[in-house]
Design a protein around this nucleic acid. Structure first.
Length: 384
DNA sequence: TCTGGGGTCCTAGGACCC
DNA sequence: TCTGGGGTCCTAGGACCC
């Protein structure tokens, strides 16, 4: 997207984030758990689907999300369940019910679409919304969106409305839960610069560490650096991007439709294993699942990849690109095992394996007229 | 008390072709 | 015989996000 022409109306972009989404959905069905620390994660529920005490948990899972009461004990998403158990043994634990979360996700997105149709999906619990062409003052639009989401689902969300996606995303975190934040360009210095650089979507743990070593902790610290300095330390592309972010500049459009790039399935073994029969059986099952998934959705792919994670967390991947896009489980399995065979034998089972996965990439819709890559070598492109 | 599963995008090097 | 670029495709690994 080019910069807006001088005189063009500034954009108005909302970021809407559901509050503790999975946990909140569970509380809708179990109001008796309101006010208690509840953790979503683990594989099985108690009798009758009842929550289990976290103190009984043993396994390798992580916290998918948790209620604000559990967060008060330091529990958060992606934390090992065993660690959460140590922090808050009195918490209750429920397994994730993704079918139900997807149902509520469709409901809240439909409610938003009735007000503003230009929506970018960012997963099950967040969206960007382009409000530039929607009539109304920002605060009342934000309130209308929150009301619509609550009426459709009974759930609360947090919204920020800003000149672009970068600032809207940062803003929706500022007043959680149930917040509404408006950010104007002139708020940059006072509202954005004091925040940690890690709040920028795209600065993760590694970049955050590297910045901290350069004494860059806040977004304001980042803004004070010359772009050339950032380019020297982070490369041309990432360095320029960091500088632009710090100054609140972002012209990415709201993308209302994106074709999928890959589909995958992976699983972590209950215990690390070097048992080839077990590994092969699990890989076959994953190939079948990903194939069925592709067929259901009408896609096929040419690049089949396998992934191994060893007990020391080292990851090895191998890709195998085949001549024609496939989606039947047998063809995926053949390609996946061929890829796996390319991991050197002395490496393959050198250590116990923790996880195995399969991915199908370079997706096409087999029914579509012309594949994005054009005709295969030696093949004539048929136009009719 | 270690660390799930499903994604996207970027980089860098090598093969191959013109 | 030796010397070029540029472009595309593929691969492996890694960072990051929800």
């Amino acid at each position: 997207m080019p910069d807006p022409l001088p005189g063009a109306a500034p954009r108005r972009i909302a970021h809407l984030d559901m509050d503790a989404f999975y946990a909140s959905v569970e509380l809708l069905r179990r109001p008796e758990l309101r006010g208690l620390p509840v953790v979503i994660g683990g594989r099985r529920a108690g009798p009758d689907g009842a929550p289990r005490p976290l103190s009984e948990y043993a396994g390798r899972g992580v916290v998918t999300t948790c209620t604000y009461e559990a967060r008060a004990y330091g529990v958060h998403s992606a934390m090992a369940m065993m660690k959460a158990r140590a922090l808050c043994p009195q918490a209750l634990m429920l397994p994730a019910d993704f079918d139900e979360y997807r149902r509520l996700s469709r409901l809240f997105k439909a409610a938003i679409a009735a007000i503003a149709p230009e929506i970018e999906d960012r997963g099950i619990d967040e969206v960007y919304i382009d409000l530039t062409q929607v009539a109304g003052e920002s605060r009342s639009l934000g309130q209308a969106l929150k009301r619509a989401v609550r009426e459709a689902t009974g759930l609360t969300c947090s919204i920020a409305i800003a000149p672009n996606k970068l600032l809207a995303k940062i803003g929706s975190e500022l007043d959680k839960p149930d917040g509404l934040t408006l950010i104007e360009p002139e708020d940059l210095e006072e509202v954005i610069w004091p925040l940690p650089a890690r709040r920028i979507n795209g600065i993760g743990p590694k970049a955050g560490e590297r910045l901290a070593k350069l004494d860059i902790v806040t977004i304001g610290d980042l803004a004070r650096e010359r772009p050339e300095f950032l380019v020297r330390h982070f490369g041309e592309r990432y360095g320029r991007w960091l500088h632009a972010c710090a100054w609140g500049r972002d012209d990415r459009p709201v993308v209302t439709h994106q074709e999928p790039v890959s589909r995958s399935r992976e699983t972590t073994f209950e215990e690390d294993t070097r048992d080839w029969d077990e590994i092969a059986a699990v890989l076959s099952r994953l190939c079948r699942q990903v194939g069925e998934d592709l067929q259901r959705r009408g896609y096929a792919g040419r690049t089949i990849g396998v992934k191994l994670r060893y007990d020391n967390f080292r990851i090895v991947t191998r890709d195998n690109t085949v001549a024609e896009a496939v989606n039947d489980p047998a063809a995926i399995r053949r390609a996946a095992f061929a890829a796996l065979a390319r991991v050197a034998p002395q490496r393959r089972l050198a250590r116990p394996i923790r996880l195995i996965g399969v991915r199908v990439g370079a997706l096409v819709r087999p029914g579509s007229a012309i594949a994005p890559s054009g005709p295969a070598p030696g093949e004539t492109l048929r136009l009719f």
